[in-house]
Design a protein around this nucleic acid. Structure first.
Length: 543
DNA sequence: CGGCCAATACTG
DNA sequence: CAGTAT
DNA sequence: GCCG
């Protein structure tokens, strides 16, 4: 690749591009995956191109040591190879010094004698052990590992939060609260791993890292594919697109060629091809095809009805239905689907924050009426401070730890009497009286007092001792939830909305033996702390 | 090729 | 049990 | 879809 354009090739805070022009091949053997992904990202951000195979284009080959190198690449090829063959340490040092350091000290030599090689590989091994002590914590105590992970998370989260803040500046006043808070934290975290950011921060104290819209052309199209594939029931595929969007959003430059994203996590052959097509043609034929295909369009539409999923949507299509109006004459619809259909437009309409707040208050008063002391909060995007919400997620408990039982049915009855709840979708008649320690749930539609517009509402009643888990779960967002779950997993626990359980891993236990009871925590913070996850205020959980 | 976003609860 | 939703 |  010809490194010709040395001017401001990107609108990013990335005048450095310290790896600009180099083309790398990575020997992944022996590298901790997480670290590898970070390196790839850095390389790409700093202008390098990642090759999947060792070719003439490659100017730098990286390996953790000679053994891994030879294990993955033909010795024969290597002897013919003309570029640098280096230890990853070169990468680390270059990143921390903010410039490409001399390759001399990091060269991996093949042409040594056998015994020399043995010696060297030993040396390298030791080197790497030193290295790994401050980047690969696995050998040492668990605690350290989690700590480092947490640090990484912090960095990522803050960046993501910034992303959101930028893109949602339009309609969210809360997110602007994020901005003043982020730079300091972010710059502090960034100082450690990547020194060059420090300079950037000094020069641009206001915005340490600003990856706004660039590549929106790509993420928008991928966003549509997510919905289409989900409607078609191809969840896995849909999720692949879902995962790759944040990766692309983090890039500080506008993608002009698929080479620039090659090797990034979640980006394989297909993604590259799609990206290439989008940056050259401005559109994606695959998406165009989907959007014109009547079957895909119809199934997608039907799938937007509450209670209709991919399977039902397809059946209905095959029965000949093409519009929502047609569907109303179908007998096989369930009660929920009929309600979902009838109030299709209502349900899709977002709810202004103010109305949610009013309804939360209404619910709290109604609850207090029939059960003094009952604790009722609206979770979901409302609790995260969003200016509008898709629905109401109401999380309920009672401080005394027992009078929550049987509350839900009384509450629902009451709310129906006052004409707040209007239609049922799902009613868990779980613990009317006594079946203890389970979560009662109600899904339905409600209205703002004096109006007819239907709003989706979920009510969930938790026993006090697992309330914190429910609150965390229903406050979200899903990205944060997933990280918490992952973190819990890595520490040998299983986390969900009903508790934190010691991993009953593969051994024996089927379903009957739900034996392990959840650890008890009174507050969200205690859960975060226990997991070693940094505390996020609800409004900071819009990752 | 098979796993991956986990796990659970209601409906009919 | 399959399908659907959270 | 991607990844191992």
């Amino acid at each position: 690749m010809a490194p010709k354009k040395s001017k401001n090739r990107t609108p990013s805070p990335d005048p450095n591009g310290i790896f600009s022009g180099i083309s790398v091949y990575l020997v992944e053997k022996g590298v901790q995956n997480r670290r590898l992904q970070v390196w790839k990202q850095k390389l790409v951000q700093m202008g390098a191109t990642i090759e999947e195979r060792l070719s003439k284009k490659v100017s730098h080959v990286f390996a953790v040591d000679l053994n891994s190198l030879l294990q993955q690449v033909d010795r024969e090829r290597l002897t013919r190879y003309k570029g640098f063959i280096l230890l990853y340490q070169w990468l680390v040092d270059s990143l921390s010094s903010g410039e490409k350091v001399s390759e001399d000290l990091y060269l991996l030599n093949l042409d040594s004698e056998e015994d020399n090689i043995a010696d060297k590989s030993l040396d390298w091994k030791q080197e790497n052990e030193n290295v790994s002590s401050d980047c690969e914590p696995l050998h040492h105590k668990r605690i350290k590992s989690s700590h480092e992970d947490v640090e990484s998370f912090k960095v990522e989260s803050k960046r993501d939060a910034d992303n959101n803040a930028v893109s949602e500046t339009l309609n969210s006043s809360i997110s602007s609260d994020n901005l003043p808070d982020s730079p300091s934290t972010a710059s502090m975290s960034l100082d450690t791993p990547g020194g060059q950011f420090k300079d950037v921060n000094v020069l641009q104290p206001s915005l340490p890292y600003s990856p706004p819209d660039l590549n929106k052309n790509i993420t928008e199209i991928f966003g549509k594919l997510i919905n289409i594939y989900r409607a078609l029931g191809e969840d896995r595929r849909s999720f692949s697109y879902y995962k790759v969007i944040p990766v692309i959003e983090k890039l500080p430059f506008k993608i002009e060629s698929a080479d620039q994203v090659k090797g990034l996590p979640g980006i394989g052959k297909s993604m590259q091809d799609h990206i290439q097509e989008i940056v050259t043609n401005g559109n994606l034929s695959k998406l165009e095809h989907f959007e014109t295909d009547e079957k895909v369009r119809t199934i997608s539409l039907f799938g937007e009805v509450w209670g209709i999923g991919p399977a039902t949507a397809q059946k209905l299509y095959e029965k000949g239905y093409r519009t929502l109006d047609d569907l109303k004459s179908e007998d096989s619809l369930t009660h929920s689907q009929r309600v979902g259909l009838k109030y299709f437009d209502d349900i899709k309409t977002r709810i202004p924050r103010q109305e949610v707040q009013d309804m939360e208050l209404l619910l709290q008063k109604a609850g207090e009426d029939i059960l003094p002391g009952v604790d009722i909060v609206c979770g979901g995007s409302f609790r995260r401070g969003k200016s509008s919400c898709g629905d109401l997620d109401i999380v309920i408990t009672h401080p005394d730890g027992k009078s929550h039982k049987g509350f839900l049915s009384r509450f629902v009855k009451r709310l129906k009497d006052m004409n707040f709840l209007r239609e049922d979708l799902i009613f868990s008649t779980h613990s009317e009286e006594d079946s203890d320690s389970c979560v009662d749930t109600y899904f339905g539609l409600c209205t703002y007092p004096g109006r007819e517009l239907r709003r989706r509402i979920d009510l969930k009643v938790y026993p006090r001792d697992i309330y914190a888990f429910g609150l965390i779960h229903w406050t979200g967002n899903d990205v944060l939830n997933r990280r918490l779950r992952l973190l819990a997993d890595s520490k040998g626990y299983r986390l969900d909305d009903t508790g934190l359980f010691p991993a009953t891993h593969g051994s024996g236990g089927k379903k009957g033996a739900k034996a392990s009871t959840s650890l008890k925590f009174g507050t969200e913070k205690e859960v975060f702390d226990f997991l070693g996850f940094p505390w996020f205020e609800p409004h900071e959980r819009n990752l």
